[in-house]
């Protein structure tokens, strides 16, 4: 069995309206892979998110990356939050079964 690799899972909960801008920002930091999931509904400081229009739909963006890259991405997210963007960023330590052996390159 391949050795498990230690990575960080960044989960971003935000409005669908921010999807493009966040994806653009993380791509600039060298992130190549991510998964976006549409939330069926939710609520928060912006009120009910019914999931019908872009303005009231939440998404979850999942990104797996190294700790070094995570730091740069979190800097960007913090900057966006300072500007007023409503973003929740959750970081989790994870172990993943890599696509290649430990000696090979990882995806992110």
């Amino acid at each position: 069995m391949r050795r498990l690799e230690q990575k960080k899972l960044l989960t971003i909960i935000t409005s669908r309206a921010f999807e493009k801008i966040i994806i653009e920002a993380v791509r600039m930091r060298g992130v190549g892979g991510y998964t976006v999931v549409q939330a069926s509904s939710g609520a928060g400081a912006s009120g009910t998110q019914a999931g019908m229009f872009d303005g009231d739909s939440n998404i979850l963006i999942y990104i797996i990356m190294s700790e070094a890259r995570l730091v740069t991405v979190l800097d960007d997210l913090e900057d966006m939050m300072n500007r007023g963007y409503r973003i929740k960023a959750v970081v989790t330590d994870i172990s993943i079964l890599p696509r290649k052996n430990a000696s090979g390159a990882s995806t992110n």
């Binding site: 309206a17 921010f18 400081a45 009120g47 229009f53 303005g55 009231d56 500007r83 007023g84 409503r86």
Partner: peptide, 20 residues
């Protein structure tokens, strides 16, 4: 539909709960 989605990005300081 259109404006809240654009304004949310362009004027993030505003509260969507109000205008939407």
């Amino acid at each position: 539909i259109v404006v809240p989605a654009v304004v949310r990005v362009a004027i993030p300081e505003a509260n969507p709960g109000l205008y939407f």
